[in-house]
């Protein structure tokens, strides 16, 4: 067997994994952070998309109470904002202030982004000939 060094390499590999488990037991906090680390979302906002556009969706979903926790209670604004932050790799910051910024806009601009989305769906509906 000319490849004993390769078996040694595999032995080293398993020894390392066993040592890692020992470290996870000895230093749970340091290694816990790694295991809890969230996977990054692959999605980002296009250049033309602004934070207030996203906040329109967050505010709408918050007010609708259509997004709930496992116990059926409606989601808090802060949790909805955090979810969108993760989804699009953005920082919404003070979600209450941003929510207020959405609500206080002039009627003509109030739901500009959501209206745009609705319009796109309607156009696609018509284009495909649905009635």
């Amino acid at each position: 067997m000319p490849y004993l060094h390769l078996i040694d390499e595999a032995i080293g590999l398993l020894n390392t994994e066993i040592r890692l488990i020992e470290w996870r037991i000895k230093y749970p906090e340091q290694l816990q952070q790694r295991t809890n680390k969230q996977v990054l979302s692959p999605l980002y906002l296009a250049d033309k998309t602004t934070l207030i556009n996203i906040m329109e969706m967050v505010s709408g979903l918050f007010l609708s109470k259509d997004i709930v926790y496992q116990n059926g209670k409606p989601a808090y604004l802060v949790d909805l904002a955090k979810a969108f932050e993760w989804l699009f790799n953005i920082r919404i910051g003070d979600c209450y202030q941003n929510h207020e910024d959405v609500i206080k806009r002039k009627p003509g601009k109030l739901t500009e982004f959501l209206n745009g989305l609705a319009e796109l769906i309607k156009k696609e509906h018509d284009k495909k000939g649905y009635r």
């Binding site: 000319p2 004993l4 595999a10 032995i11 398993l14 994994e17 488990i21």
Partner: peptide, 19 residues
């Protein structure tokens, strides 16, 4: 992992003896 490790070690011993 210990199971795999011991299996590898026994292969190593066997192949070394053959060598």
């Amino acid at each position: 992992f210990f199971f795999g490790l011991h299996r590898l070690k026994s292969y190593r011993v066997r192949f070394e003896q053959e060598k």
